[in-house]
Design a protein around this nucleic acid. Structure first.
Lengths: 160, 160
DNA sequence: CCTATATAAATGCAGTTGCATCTATATTGC
DNA sequence: GCAATATAGATGCAACTGCATTTATATAGG
């Protein structure tokens, strides 16, 4: 469930002499959420239209692929994707069921496993990129001059 | 499932002579998602810590409250919150079960209903605002001068 | 060596979402 | 007035998420 609305008008929000956010702050917040939500939905819907997996799978496949040829441990993947442990475990279940990764036992640690991407996984991720990047290009690039893009990047990074 | 990773390096992404996004575009995208995701999580976790409902409820309660005293139809709410019809229907179920809204029959249309906020709903939304706005202030305001905030707003709005 | 604790990963359960469909009432065109 | 269609809203089902707990193995301390 996403946020779109914030109302800071006096009648709805001012309580005693509590410090209030500046109007600009609220505009930044709502525009930020609405921009990322829209982009996200556009990308997911383009992928779905092509019968391709979701962005979550893309991210996971990319990280696993980057770890080639050694493979990657689920606990490492979880840190790189900023996912909870159980989320990673189940995501890997689904990706494995689709045949995009293999799970291998690991030498020195009987608790663990090593994940490696399959050829099919590589090809699928590769097929996703043009769809994914197309939406990014169409939705972002027309709006900014190079100078604006640089400034935008600088400002966005302050939030992270 | 959220996106954090995009890789546009040649080895992973260049396919034939396909047009590629500029590096800046990808940085904008990833920073945007990661900033809004972080903020969202911070706000949700602050609300949860206080035993308050989620942001989705906040938005809905606010819109319903703004429609006082006439109330609002679910199909109007759905448009204002940009939620799917079934999502709205179920969100209202849950909010009603918590006693934050009442559903009334509507005069001229036997299919429909009118939603009105209850006193308890009003109080709950009011209690959420300080928690919500506190995170916004702390996470956003320290990073920007007024001029930067204005420029950031301008750039963000281009994406919507 | 053996118990206590820490780490890797899986899982049961409840809540939420997306999708498709269904029910009920309204509106339109004949 | 009546059939066809449109609109308001609910719901069954499958997939996904968060939370808490569980299983299995590793490591540390005595």
């Amino acid at each position: 469930m996403f946020v779109v609305k914030v109302d800071a008008s006096a009648s709805f929000c001012i309580i005693g002499n509590m410090q209030q956010p500046k109007p600009q702050t609220i505009i930044i917040w709502t525009s930020l959420v609405s921009a990322s939500r829209t982009l996200l939905e556009d990308i997911e819907s383009a992928l779905k239209k092509e019968g391709l997996p979701t962005l979550g799978w893309y991210d996971a496949l990319l990280e696993i692929e980057k770890a080639d040829p050694d493979g990657i441990r689920p606990f490492e993947l979880k840190e790189r994707l900023l996912l909870p442990q159980y989320g990673t475990s189940r995501l890997l279940d689904r990706i494995a069921k689709a045949g995009f990764i293999d799970r291998h036992e690991v030498e020195r640690d009987g608790r663990g496993q090593v994940i490696k991407v399959t050829q099919k996984g590589r090809e699928t991720r590769r097929a996703m990129w043009p769809v994914y990047s197309e939406v990014l290009m169409q939705s972002i690039e027309p709006h900014f001059t190079p100078a604006e893009a640089a400034e935008f990047t600088r400002l966005l990074k302050k939030l992270t």
